[in-house]
Computed example of a mutant assay.
Amino acid sequence: MDHTGGTAGTLDEALQRLHASGPERLGRLTNHAPMAVEALAAHGRSGAVHRWLDLYAPKLEEFPGTVETVTGDNWREALGDPRRAADWIAYFGRETEERPWRDVLAQWWPRLLPGMYGGSTHPVIRVGHAVRTLLSGDETEPRVAELAHGLGYWAARHRPVTGVAPLPGAAGAAAALDAVPPIPDRDSGGFPARLGRVTGLPVWAAGVTGPDEAHRRLTELVRAATHRYATHGHGEETMLVHAATAPNAVLRTLPALPRALWVPGLRAAWTASAAVTAMYAPDAPVAYELPGTFAPEEVFERALAHGDEHVIKFTDTALDVGDERALAAALRAVELSVPLA
């Protein structure tokens, strides 16, 4: 893990470079670069960080302008307003300068968690990458600032999911994902429109009350969603990666949170993974096997050579799972996705 020592400064340099850019582009598409460069550094590929950023740079936009300062008194009215992204990032920048970042995260996790579905779940994924970095190495200013950017983006894109009826579920995560009913009219609309058509999801892990069981179930969910991509990723090669990467972001964040917040994290992560499955799953699975024998490092090298930001981040999650089926899913993402030009 390349978070400490000689070349760790490369990640800090990249984050400083990226903090001059906004969290989105074209008013709706997420800036994935902070997450991707963290994944590269985490897998010992700091030498590729700036080369990759040079390729991704055309997708970056300038940092947005401010509207009105977010404070401890007016934050509720600014929550979920994407025009306030800069205001929110500035707010969390001040908060993390004045207090330990873990305290800020613990205060805001229960406030933000119900709205983790905005921004196609990218805000919580960005927070998960930032927290992994902070837990793995020095708490440098750029890394703490990255957490502030992630939390600010989440607050600006905060969107709850309501009116989702509980449907019969299954004991295991894989079977529960299989039981997710597809939304109507899956061929039209972006993420927000499709999310509005999710009206019912299977019950899974609803009875979990203990933090250790919540951690175990989240691990199971990430594994199941990652494995499922190998056979279902063709439904939508980009969006379906979030069925795995969003719950994995929650899983990565748990060690930095009070244990009392672990169960709510599990429940929100299941809703996110199941909703993405409902929105983009194909009509039928296809058979897919690992095409040969590959070490995890080889699979990550293929993802880096491909270059697509979602492929890199999904492969990062697949390597967390670590088994042969997860590696097959990562290679399936390489096969299905358009490379970064």
Rank of each mutant, 00 (worst) to 15 (best):
S337C: 10
E213F: 03
I183W: 02
D73V: 13
A20W: 11
T162M: 05
H129G: 07
V208E: 08
P339E: 06
T226S: 04
I183Q: 02
L55C: 00
H122G: 10
L331S: 06
D12M: 08
D320G: 01
E98S: 14
L240I: 02
A193Y: 04
V164G: 08
V127F: 05
M239V: 01
L55M: 04
G265C: 07
T133H: 04
A78H: 15
P211C: 12
L29P: 04
A214G: 07
H232P: 04
A86L: 05
H32W: 11
I125Q: 15
E24F: 10
A214K: 00
A57W: 00
T253A: 13
R132I: 02
L151W: 06
V198P: 05
A326M: 00
P296Q: 10
A260V: 12
H19E: 15
Y229H: 10
R302E: 14
W154Y: 01
A173R: 07
A173Q: 05
L15Y: 07
L167M: 09
D87Q: 08
H149R: 15
G307R: 00
L79M: 11
V131I: 13
F314L: 03
T238M: 13
V311F: 10
V311T: 15
A274Y: 09
V263T: 15
V124H: 06
H149W: 12
H50W: 10
Y288W: 15
R17K: 07
G190L: 06
D308V: 00
L105M: 10
E141S: 14
P142L: 05
T30A: 15
A333Q: 09
L336Y: 09
A33M: 09
L79Q: 08
A330M: 06
G233N: 10
A48C: 04
Y280K: 07
P202M: 06
A78I: 03
P64L: 09
P296I: 03
